[in-house]
């Protein structure tokens, strides 16, 4: 449960402005869905929150403190691709984070500590429906199972914020529905702040307590790279399962009308 504050954020690569003038407060425990055209900078925004990219201007605060400049266990991530480690079994993938954080030197646990960690990991895997597949290798899993494993792996680290970059984008409709339902359940249980980037508008509104639309408001037809995208719509989502701390009125502060 963490609050993210974005103040006057710009991001440009050389001459090319990708993001501009982003001011946001993301309330603890909310599930914010971000939608926008391809290439408008959604992943870039997530990568800034992750600490992989630095803002060109502006600041990002996590619970009032500046964001650490590199990825760490306070911010979890699930990508669309390469989300689990191909050389580890399902169980070892889930155990990995627990082992790394507990053992500086070996990055492995042994004996009773390993058994305790194993129980935790196995319980989480059962929770995401992978109890039968503990010893499988990732390439033996379906895409939906891999994404559920990635979700379990990220949540076992108990991140303050969970970042999801089109996590279900490559799934068939059936597995996508399952994975979405699972995400909602886990989010309700744990109250982690979640930021979900998606191309799928219905998904954004169904899962999100709040939906942000990224788009360019200023355009220069002769130099398209001069202006970047910003938050053009800030809408309440249909997800009222568990209202975040902030009152609804404050959350739905439209900067433009509904699309």
């Amino acid at each position: 449960m963490s609050r993210i504050e974005v103040r006057g954020l710009w991001k440009s690569y050389g001459e090319r402005v990708v993001l501009e003038r982003i001011d946001l407060t993301i309330e603890p425990g909310s599930l914010v869905a971000i939608v926008g055209a391809s290439g408008c900078g959604k992943s870039t925004f997530l990568r800034i929150l992750l600490g992989v990219e630095r803002p060109s201007r502006g600041r990002v605060l996590l619970d009032g403190a500046p964001l650490p400049p590199e990825p760490g266990p306070d911010r979890g991530i699930v990508f669309q691709r390469y989300t689990v480690f191909p050389h580890l079994t399902v169980l070892d993938n889930a155990l990995l984070g627990l082992e790394l954080r507990a053992s500086r030197v070996f990055g492995r646990l042994f004996g009773a500590r390993r058994r305790r960690a194993r129980e935790r990991a196995a319980a989480m895997l059962a929770r995401v429906g992978l109890a039968e597949a503990l010893d499988a290798l990732p390439h033996e899993l379906s895409g939906g199972m891999q994404q559920r494993l990635a979700l379990a792996q990220a949540l076992l680290a108990e991140p303050r914020v969970l970042l999801l970059d089109e996590p279900f984008g490559a799934l068939d409709p059936g597995s996508r529905g399952e994975a979405q339902a699972l995400l909602l359940e886990l989010w309700e249980e744990r109250g982690t702040t979640v930021i979900l980037v998606t191309h799928d508008l219905p998904e954004a509104f169904r899962l999100g307590t709040r939906v942000l639309v990224f788009d360019r408001v200023r355009r220069d037809p002769h130099a398209p790279e001069r202006y970047g995208a910003t938050v053009t719509y800030d809408l309440p989502g249909h997800n009222r399962a568990r209202s975040p701390r902030a009152p609804a009125a404050e959350r739905a502060s439209p900067r433009g009308g509904p699309p």
């Binding site: 992750l50 990825p71 760490g72 979890g76 390469y82 480690f85 984070g97 790394l100 990055g107």
Partner: peptide, 21 residues
């Protein structure tokens, strides 16, 4: 894939962990 190395860091991996595991 950069994703794998970033992901490992979000799971708490140090430089040594990234290399060894």
């Amino acid at each position: 894939p950069e994703e794998l190395l970033v992901k490992a860091q979000t799971l708490g991996a140090s430089t040594w962990h990234l290399a060894a595991r």
